[in-house]
Design a protein around this nucleic acid. Structure first.
Lengths: 344, 344
DNA sequence: TTGAAAGCGCTAACAG
DNA sequence: CTGTTAGCGCTTTCAA
């Protein structure tokens, strides 16, 4: 409640004024078809006149359905999550529900605590880029309605953008440009994406006859870029794949400061195609995906829309397509470029 | 409620198990000082053992205090609002409350509807860049707990960044570079900021002996940049002030496409210093402010923290400092630059 | 300090 | 189709 000068009218007020029982008012409001058309009209008119609005809290108490869903993101500062938040917000609103957003600051403890705190006040949780362990997520998934974004765990519904396939695209792109070595600047240790991506990178590298090195972890933010760029340089690689665009942009800046040419001396690739990826210098080659759509689907999954499979065994695992956006931060290996050093 | 395999324990369960009355349990939980230390300990231990968690819904029903605040932003896509959202989220969480965010899509109707819908489910509202009329806001402010961000209305608490003073800084900066004319690419018609800024621009222009023209409105987004840039060009101005950084970045892109030099042919200034303003080309001169702090203060105002003045007459109007970040999108007028055309 | 009991506003049987 | 009557889980007088 915000504040009622003279108290907001309740169904009791409407009932008295309309000369009917409260249950009739309740039905007229929530189940119009189960009330005589005439009385319904009458009740509605009285409610209107009194300025009645149903108290969602009171409505939720008996049923336990709050029509609210909570979304947690690992870092609300990262533009990448904007798309997810926006999609989730749209879909939640479309379903007549309300969205709560929380920042878990890359902390699995904070994730768990938030869920604990909000449990009972929301109908379910959507977690984007969860840093919790598979086991903890599975446990939480058994106790609460829960869907994941950018993370897959058996038995828990999820929506991700196909970064595995996308990472393959990145590797082929680099190989076709003549790169013989690649460095992956990894994200947080607990990041599931980081693990998955490295798997694909190292596997593809073997197939393509390239050398691949994993460095890090680095904070997936612009400020992590300097250290990441320096580390990549120390390896003498010709191609660097950053954990995300934020890190890539930070690297671009560092390379510029150090007089290292991009893509002349080194090619740089990012993930997410965030706002700014198209106008940084040079514009960034990056893996794009419909993250707003991922947000929407995750909410759908949670709310049980679209006839999506339930949780537990056979929980729906939505995989959205990704595509590589080639811009100017990647290019052919320059003739006479340094040979990659040995993969330590 | 999410879902309880075997029902979540209630204070009744705890009371029975602990051999006390429910009211004692309630007190032990909410007013520890009003219960005997020994019984309190005992009750707490039992609650712990049973895995009891208070149902916030049930707690809110009698009191009407939901410990939840709603934040509405005009466009959740705009990075500018990220800072505000983040600050609001932090402060809300610090106060032990929960934040709901909503996108009002630049629509005053949607603002009003959202407030109506959530009224009763939240303790108050924070609206950033409201598009409603002063009268409507004042009315809403009388009926609900409400604070504003980037908008001032008599009698309603608010937190803004000092764009009036900041706009003066912009004008002086341009004047000192030798500009004799300036164009303001205005934001949405209903934008209070747009009106305020134009007032300062036209006033400063008179004082500084410059010509000033207002063009627009333009959508305050990157996509609005092309039309804005073309309009500015048609005026033959040497300096353009965009309603926000998004629009400015869009203009930069258009100028580049058309071969117009920035700042050689025309200087460009934006507002907000959003993510990306420092690495677009050229890096953007823009008015910066602590928007996260504005978000924090707005929540403080709402929750009545910091001993801030209440609403009504003398409602607190927090004004945060702004400062001009001079980058490379502004520069001296080139010798032999086109003369500004007559101000129509 | 503790217990009994009356709600908060709405929904959902169960009768009529 | 409509009214009566229990609750939902917690807080809060009012007594004891």
């Amino acid at each position: 409640m915000t504040r009622g000068g003279g108290k907001r009218p309740t169904i009791y007020d409407v009932a008295r004024e309309a000369g009917v029982a409260t249950s009739t008012v309740s039905r007229a409001l929530a189940r119009p078809e189960r009330v005589n058309a005439a009385t319904r009209e009458h009740v509605l008119r009285v409610a209107e006149r009194l300025g009645y609005h149903t108290n969602q809290l009171a409505r939720a108490l008996p049923s336990g359905r709050t029509r609210t869903v909570a979304l947690f993101v690992a870092d609300i500062t990262n533009p990448h999550f904007f798309g997810i938040i926006r999609g989730a917000e749209q879909q939640t609103r479309a379903a007549g529900c309300t969205l709560i957003v929380g920042d878990t600051e890359e902390s699995p403890e904070l994730e768990a605590r938030n869920i604990e705190r909000l449990s009972g006040s929301v109908d379910g949780f959507v977690i984007a880029a969860s840093r919790m362990s598979d086991a903890d997520i599975r446990k939480l998934g058994a106790e609460h309605r829960l869907t994941l974004i950018s993370r897959q765990v058996d038995g828990v519904p999820s929506a991700i953008v196909d970064h595995a396939d996308g990472t393959g695209q990145i590797m082929e792109h680099l190989a076709s440009l003549g790169h013989r070595s690649v460095v992956y600047l990894a994200g947080p240790r607990r990041s599931w994406l980081a693990t998955q991506r490295w798997k694909v990178i190292s596997h593809s590298a073997r197939e393509l006859g390239m050398a691949a090195t994993r460095l890090g972890p680095f904070p997936p933010a612009v400020r992590g870029g300097a250290a990441a760029a320096d580390a990549a340089l120390a390896r003498g690689t010709t191609a660097a794949i950053a954990h995300n665009d934020l890190l890539a942009i930070g690297m671009l800046r560092r390379f510029a400061d150090r007089g290292v040419g991009v893509p002349g001396d080194v090619s740089v690739v990012g993930y997410d195609d965030i706002f700014g990826a198209d106008f940084c210098s040079p514009p960034l080659t990056t893996l794009a995906g419909h993250f707003a759509e991922a947000g929407r689907r995750a909410v759908d999954l949670l709310l049980g829309a679209r006839g999506e499979a339930p949780r537990g065994r056979g929980a729906a695992q939505v995989v959205l397509p990704s595509h590589l956006v080639v811009r100017e931060s990647t290019g052919p290996v320059r003739a006479g470029a340094k040979r990659p050093e040995k993969n330590l």
